[in-house]
């Protein structure tokens, strides 16, 4: 009895647009975590790889900043795509 009530409540919630918005926020969060991991693993140690541990701060910083800005721009493009998909589905607007 109780499980049926919970299941119907879950089904109702999944059908609601609040669930879809939770999903979008979740996807953005996951993307932010993936970008953070990429920056920490591949971009932060760039000076050691390229300059053989010689601390050329400005060149390293400019390079890292450029890559980080490009990644943020890619995130904005991805968000725009996500928004368009959602709006086409829900509001039927191109």
């Amino acid at each position: 009895m109780l499980s049926n009530i919970i299941l119907s409540w879950v089904e109702k919630f999944k059908m609601s647009n609040l669930f879809n918005l939770f999903l979008i926020i979740g996807v953005i969060w996951f993307t932010l975590l993936a970008i953070s991991a990429f920056l920490v693993i591949f971009i932060a140690p760039i000076d050691i790889v390229i300059f053989n541990d010689r601390k050329d701060l400005y060149i390293t910083s400019i390079l890292q900043a450029t890559i980080a800005i490009l990644i943020v721009l890619m995130l904005i493009v991805f968000l725009n795509y996500l928004k368009k998909l959602y709006i086409q589905k829900k509001l039927h607007i191109e």
């Binding site: 975590l33 953070s36 991991a37 920056l39 920490v40 932060a44 910083s61 890292q64 900043a65 980080a68």
Partner: peptide, 11 residues
């Protein structure tokens, strides 16, 4: 940055 930190003096 959640999984570590990045030194970004210019950015």
């Amino acid at each position: 940055l959640i999984f570590g930190n990045a030194f970004i003096p210019l950015l």
